[in-house]
Nucleic acid binder design. Structure first.
Length: 229
DNA sequence: GCGACAG
DNA sequence: ATCTTGTCGC
């Protein structure tokens, strides 16, 4: 477990944070296919909070993409770096997530974020932001449609429907379990949408949510408990 | 102007 | 995100 400080120059206001997003957005790469599903490493990242004690814990869990076995994991704890503001989630999560990724003993491969990438008010969500800062291929898999709209995908596992912001397609509602609420996949950095959905489906072999986010969620909660106890 | 809104 | 037990169902 590593301890994190809030980076110097980290935005202090919503206005500054939005300016950072507008600045970094130009660096997102959307025209690469990304790593082939089912090979190499896939890493889940997630964060848990204790706002009372001003503590945040992040986890990064590396899985073997073929077997979904855990290959490596790391955690980091720090101070809360930003309040929760819809559209500015990344500023709350990123410093600690970066520290957890840095603490990994191996390359993370594709990084799966708990939230959005392109599907964002300024098209620069958590997955986009993390991708630009690390250069790693990233995707976002969210549990809720945020402000976006979608038509209900077909019943079977693997069915999908566009996730839209008005006329613009910003991601996909992807059914990972038959007859169960879909997850919401969007592009992060250096991965195609088809590939992002294929990865998500492969990772959601046993549950609605990808194994990456389930493992990272469990680990960051444990890290928060231990840091807080 | 008001409310809704990833985690 | 977080507060929170048991319980219904495969």
């Amino acid at each position: 477990m590593t301890t994190v400080r809030i980076p110097a120059g980290w935005p202090a206001t919503e206005e500054e944070a939005r300016a950072v997003q507008d600045e970094l957005r130009a660096r997102v790469v959307l025209d690469e296919p990304g790593p082939p599903p089912g090979t190499g490493h896939v890493t889940g990242v997630d964060v848990a909070y204790d706002d009372e004690r001003d503590v945040v814990a992040a986890a990064a869990v590396v899985l073997d993409a073929a077997t979904l076995d855990v290959v490596a994991e790391a955690t980091a704890v720090g101070r809360v770096s930003f309040p929760y503001v819809p559209g500015l989630l990344a500023f709350r999560e990123i410093p600690t997530v970066l520290a957890a990724l840095d603490a990994l003993p191996c390359r993370p491969g594709l990084v799966v974020c708990d939230g959005y990438g392109l599907a964002h008010p300024r098209r620069f969500g958590l997955a986009s932001h993390l991708g630009v800062l690390t250069g790693l291929p990233t995707i976002g898999v969210a549990k809720n449609p945020f402000t976006f709209t979608y038509d209900e995908p077909g019943t079977p596992r693997g069915a999908s429907a566009p996730l839209r912001a008005g006329d613009e397609e910003v991601g996909r509602a992807l059914r990972t379990r038959e007859n169960v609420k879909p997850v919401f996949v969007s592009l992060g950095h250096r991965v195609s949408l088809d590939n992002a959905c294929a990865h998500t489906l492969a990772l959601a072999r046993d549950y609605r949510l990808p194994e990456t986010t389930r493992r990272a969620d469990a680990l960051c909660r444990r890290a928060l408990r231990e840091a807080t106890a």
